[in-house]
């Protein structure tokens, strides 16, 4: 007697076609990276030199770390616009601790790490809690945090740059292992941990679930608030780590660093194939996305393109990535 007029029944797609599509979907971004590398390798002199490769790896490290955190947030359908400001805040808090006189290097560095990561976690927690508790869009809440964290960083330092960190800490930032920057290895380890958390744990499963269908997850008896807060807090923790890496690499902490970094992090995540509407994507994609941005920034300089053209082309690539993302969405929906 019941006739359903709105739900045409879904039919199973043929299995081989699906796997072929999936392959194309997941490998697409990797193929793009390889093509980009090939292009610069053929058109410029030094692109594939060991020095330049380690340069690129150093250059993408901070963006990659921030983008890992951003992946968690975007996966649940949120956005975090405050990471750039939070980076400055975490750095000046960490930097202040790092320059406390009469501490051993070990003490200073561990306390500073604790302070920077703690600051990031606190800001991230507030982002998550405020948006989950009051049901506010994270876009607005983190826009607020963008100003709060920047203001706090300026207030704490009275707008002054902090420097004179322990020399061994400064040296750590440019350390290499077989030509690979140590800071990049740290970022890579974070990618591995994030991948594990997202794909192998109950927590990760529920983040994907929330991004796809919040109501279904809630009705399955899970507290949305807990997971949303956790995702933002993780993003904050990663900002704290990125702040330590920033200081190790550049040996200063200033309240005006990191302006606009959130946009690069978001770009890496989106280019990496994570859907802005949440629920789909991976941190491996984010790694590739960050690589594409880094390779592009580096390669275009080697190519001899002007600053303005460089910015223009980076913009084109971001838009292309989102178009591809749209196309991918259609493939999955089919």
């Amino acid at each position: 007697m019941q006739l359903d007029e709105n739900l045409p029944t879904a039919t199973a797609t043929a299995a081989p076609a699906v796997s072929m599509k999936l392959l194309l979907r997941d490998a697409g971004i990797g193929i793009a990276l390889v093509l980009l590398i090939l292009f610069f390798a053929l058109t410029t002199d030094h692109f594939l030199s060991p020095n330049n490769i380690s340069n690129i790896l150093t250059q993408i490290t901070i963006n990659l770390i921030l983008a890992i955190g951003m992946t968690f947030v975007i996966l649940i359908g949120g956005i975090d616009l405050s990471v750039g400001s939070m980076l400055a805040f975490c750095a000046v808090v960490g930097g202040s601790v790092l320059t406390i006189p009469d501490l051993s290097v070990f003490q200073a560095v561990s306390l500073a790490t604790l302070a920077a990561v703690g600051t990031g976690a606190l800001c991230g927690f507030l982002n998550g809690w405020i948006s989950a508790f009051w049901g506010l869009p994270s876009f607005i809440v983190t826009l607020g945090m963008l100003n709060i964290a920047r203001g706090a960083a300026l207030q704490v330092t009275d707008a002054r740059t902090i420097y004179s960190f322990p020399p061994s800490f400064n040296a750590f930032g440019s350390q290499m292992i077989y030509g690979v920057p140590v800071v990049f290895l740290i970022a890579l380890a974070l990618v591995a941990i994030a991948w594990f958390v997202l794909s192998k744990t109950v927590f990760g499963r529920l983040l994907y679930g929330i991004g796809n269908n919040e109501e279904a997850v809630r009705l399955a008896g899970h507290s949305l608030m807990t997971y949303k807060i956790a995702a933002f807090t993780i993003a904050g923790v990663l900002v704290g780590i990125a702040a330590m890496v920033y200081m190790a690499r550049l040996n200063i902490a200033s309240p005006i660093i990191g302006i606009g970094f959130e946009l690069n992090a978001i770009a890496a995540v989106i280019i990496g194939g994570t859907s802005l509407s949440g629920g789909r994507g991976s941190v491996i994609g984010t790694l590739l996305g960050a690589c594409i941005i880094g390779v592009l920034a580096n390669g275009l300089i080697l190519f001899g393109l002007s600053d303005f053209m460089r910015q223009l082309i980076t913009g084109v690539v971001i838009i292309l990535a989102v178009i591809i993302d749209k196309y991918r969405e259609r493939i999955t929906a089919a």
Partner: peptide, 27 residues
Amino acid sequence: EGLILSMPIAANVTMASLADVSRAGLL
């Protein structure tokens, strides 16, 4: 409200009983 269509069948089946198919938070 019932399903997460773009997620695997297994993930949907275990959505309300994840504690039974995980140990210490690991699936």
